[in-house]
Amino acid sequence: MKQNGSDPAGGTGTIARYSLHDAIVGRLRDMIIEGELTPGERIYEGPLCEKLGVSRTPLREALRFLASEGLVELTPNRGASVRRFSARDVEDMLVVIRAMEELAGRLVCEQASDEEIAELRILHDTMLEHYRAGNRLEYYKTNQLIHITLVRLSHNESLIQAHAGLHSRLKRIRFIGHSGPEKWAAAVAEHQEMIDALEARDCHALIDALGRHLANAWLRVKDQV
């Protein structure tokens, strides 16, 4: 396999040999999130192996991993396809995610150290840098890391694991939720309210901001599901 020193998780060149599994998983996940591989689309191994510069064995391992995340479906005698969710599926998952993150927000407000809250501020400021630069994919990744970190800082392992399972299935949906300048600006403003409430340890304001943010997430995507 050719090695060209490219970023193992991004770019358009072939994938370097180091961290091969993570690199393939990351590239395929990005292709699904950005819509290069569309919901319901069958994934043909041959062309994809050629595109990524990898063999079938690591590609299949990566597809199995993405199936465990809920992004890919594996069908006997048919192979892999990008998982398609109905509008009802998406709305139901967002309702549960909203309840989980509201609970996490309350726990973080009550229990998190100043250093942990500062960790979220750093992520928020990084997200704003990507927003100002118009880098939608990196903005999205940092945005989602904020939500994951908020739940992680609840230090409730049952909540963390349950949230991770649903969160992974909604990656593409959450990405399209800020398509267009008005939706994107609204999502940024909601995140600003969230970090302000968290730094003030205003539990009610944080839960309200999280609830509106995730309710609006459905409104921003429902016409595109």
Rank of each mutant, 00 (worst) to 15 (best):
M1I: 08
M1E: 08
Q3W: 11
Q3F: 10
D7E: 04
D7K: 07
D7A: 07
P8R: 08
G10K: 07
G11S: 03
G11A: 00
G11E: 01
T12Y: 15
I15K: 04
I15F: 02
Y18F: 11
Y18R: 12
D22S: 14
A23W: 02
I24V: 07
V25L: 12
R27V: 00
R27P: 03
L28W: 12
R29H: 12
D30I: 15
I32L: 10
I33Q: 06
E34K: 15
G35L: 01
L37S: 01
L37D: 02
T38L: 12
P39E: 03
G40S: 00
G40H: 02
G40R: 01
E41M: 09
Y44I: 15
P47S: 06
P47M: 04
L48I: 07
C49T: 08
C49M: 14
C49L: 08
K51T: 10
S55D: 09
R56K: 15
R56S: 13
L59P: 06
R60H: 15
L63F: 04
R64P: 13
R64C: 14
F65G: 11
L66I: 06
A67L: 07
S68I: 04
G70E: 00
E73G: 07
T75L: 12
P76R: 11
P76M: 05
G79W: 02
A80E: 08
A80V: 10
S81W: 08
S81H: 11
R83H: 02
R83F: 00
R84D: 13
F85P: 03
S86C: 05
R88S: 15
D89P: 02
V90N: 10
V90Q: 10
V90Y: 09
E91L: 14
M93G: 08
V96T: 14
V96R: 14
A99Q: 13
E101R: 15
A104R: 03
L107Q: 11
V108K: 06
A112T: 00
S113A: 08
S113K: 04
A118M: 11
L123W: 03
L123T: 04
L123N: 10
H124T: 03
D125T: 05
M127T: 03
M127K: 07
R132G: 06
R132C: 06
R132M: 10
N135V: 05
N135A: 14
R136Q: 08
L137D: 01
Y139C: 04
T142S: 10
Q144A: 09
L145Y: 04
I146M: 12
I146K: 09
I148P: 00
I148Q: 09
R152E: 12
E157C: 11
S158R: 15
L159I: 03
Q161F: 11
A162P: 05
A164W: 05
G165I: 13
G165M: 15
L166C: 02
L166S: 03
H167Q: 10
S168E: 13
R169S: 10
I173N: 14
F175E: 00
G177E: 02
G177V: 01
H178Q: 08
S179D: 15
K183P: 11
W184N: 07
A185L: 03
A187L: 11
E190M: 06
Q192L: 09
Q192F: 03
I195D: 02
I195S: 01
I195N: 00
A197Q: 02
A197C: 01
E199A: 08
H204M: 13
A205K: 10
A205N: 06
I207H: 13
D208C: 12
G211C: 02
R212T: 13
H213T: 04
H213P: 04
L219Y: 12
L219F: 13
V221C: 05
V225R: 10
V225T: 11
